[in-house]
Design a binder for these strands. Sequence first.
DNA 1: AAAACGGGGGC
DNA 2: GCCCCAGTTTT
Length: 358
Amino acid sequence: MRDGLSDILLEWYDTHARVMPWRVSPQDRKDGVLPDPYCVWMSEIMLQQTTVAAVKDYFHRFTAKWPTVSDLAAAEDADVMAEWAGLGYYARARNLLKCARAVVDDHGGRFPDTREGLLKLPGVGPYTAGAVSSIAFNRSEVVVDGNVERVMSRLYNVETPLPTSKPELTELARALTPEERPGDYAQAVMDLGATICTPRNPACGICPWREPCVARAEGTAASLPRKLPKKKVPTRFGHAYVARRADGTWLLETRPEKGMLGGMLGWPGSEWSDDPTPTPPFDGHWTTLNAEALHTFTHFHLRLKVHTAELPHGAEPGNAVLIGKHDFKPSSLPTVMRKVYDLAAATFVPVADDGSER
DNA sequence: AAAACGGGGGC
DNA sequence: GCCCCAGTTTT
């Protein structure tokens, strides 16, 4: 038996691998079983900037609704965006569809099996190309996500702050990537980072790499990786307009492809800025709520004033998306728009199934 | 090289 | 509540 660093980690992974819906167990992998590249790709796109816990239900819903890449390629854009609602970074969902259609149209419905081929696909960058090629196709490719950056910076006690240290960490990770079991190895390093070598309070005492780890010897593990200071986020303001017809139909709009929440359903509203101009979607009797919808994005806080009105028949603006009482699902809205809905909905009189107010 | 781009979880 | 976390694309 060899005892290189990667072998130590693989031995740990054999007994500690996390079970995930898109994964094949180390035992099954040794029997030659490989996961469905479509499922690996889907999970890796969802896992970008997102935790496993948040992804699980979305993964189940997507693969149940669209079991193959061909099914997804044939889906309606609006259905995919609605299903993605709440998961965030909506450009991922737009690229997910683009990518599925590229795989069907340009690759005969099969994912490219090399890093280079995968890198050409929409929404697939260095991390995802490495992950899919190694996990789904058992190719020895370096896989560097935030977990791997943290593990490498500690294992080798890299004190240069991120993102400056990224190339160095990638080289260190590449040097460790084995020819044997590269898919299990990639998942093992990420599992190590997610469960043992955590950002705070790393469990060095039970780490399979505790002996070779330089940061553990130096006592610097918890302080690594260093990061350049981040600037604090400004607050922006805006207005959202929630209107409902007497029969319970809601007035929404599809947001432009570019920009925040691109392609998602939302309430009509103003620009988000320091001092936005209120711009109701139609002239009517608007009521301004006392409460604001508060939401924080990556780079700014948002405070939305919520206005409500009854929507007269025939008053719909040109870009309106009208959704009937039974078809409207708050879960198909991005989170900030769902917060607006939660505030506004309480002020509307319930509508009976026959359309009469009660 | 830097900014844009969401949401969830830990403390 | 405040802080932290994390890939790809666009500028």
